[in-house]
């Protein structure tokens, strides 16, 4: 393997490309006007549902009012403002044990107004797979953590150690059969963002 590594690096260095400096930061990027409004619109365009919750105290009631929550026998919650069902430690130790999970409620770290994407720190969960195993997903996001576009998002995110973060925009979907859009591909069938304080 070391021989391949050396050969590839040598070949790449022999290539004699023209010098090309990294382009300098060229100023701010434009952003949408009202972030909450822009986010809600983009979220809907991505096939998601955006529910505005004016006060943090109203989150629990707003969650319980969701049809997915009313139907779910067991809800997994990693959000401090919502008590989910009890999951035994050995259930959470092996991701396959979570197959059939109906609804997961997770905290969002930040939201991007231009695309309706929410950054979720999946590395902080007992199982990263929860995000995609759940039939339905709810992300609770403080409206104060909305940013206009991805440039502003990456200015806030840090990648310093092991971890797993993901931008989630709407439910899983596919257009692989005759380009016809089907919501609910291999991951969640619905994604709801509870925008708290908006």
């Amino acid at each position: 393997m070391d021989a391949s590594r050396a050969a590839i690096l040598a070949a790449v260095r022999r290539a004699r490309t023209e010098p090309a400096p990294l382009p300098p930061d060229d100023g701010a990027w434009p952003g949408a006007g009202d972030l909450a409004e822009g986010f809600a619109r983009a979220c809907a365009a991505a096939g998601g549902r955006c529910v505005r919750v004016p006060e943090a105290a109203g989150l629990e009631a707003a969650l319980r009012a969701l049809p997915e929550a009313a139907r779910a026998a067991r809800i997994y919650s990693a959000h401090p403002g919502f008590a989910g069902a009890h999951f035994a430690p050995d259930e959470l130790a092996e991701p396959r044990r979570l197959a059939g999970l109906e609804l997961a409620v997770l905290p969002g770290v930040l939201g991007v107004a231009e695309s309706g994407a929410v950054w979720v720190d999946a590395g902080a969960l007992p199982q990263r797979a929860v995000l995609w195993l759940a039939e339905h997903l709810v992300l609770a996001l403080p409206a104060a953590d909305l940013v206009p576009q991805l440039h502003a998002a990456y200015a806030r995110l840090r990648f310093e150690g092991p971890g797993f973060g993901v931008f989630v925009a709407g439910p899983s979907k596919t257009a692989d059969i005759e380009q016809s859009l089907v919501v609910g591909a291999q991951g969640p069938r619905s994604t709801t963002v509870m925008l708290v304080g908006a």
């Binding site: 365009a45 991007v112 309706g116 994407a117 995609w132 990648f159 092991p162 797993f164 925009a169 899983s172």
Partner: peptide
């Protein structure tokens, strides 16, 4: 690719689980 603003999932993997 498809005219979407971003794909449904953009996973950033840093190290094994």
């Amino acid at each position: 690719a498809t005219g979407q603003a971003i794909t449904a999932y953009s996973s950033h993997v840093h190290g094994p689980r």
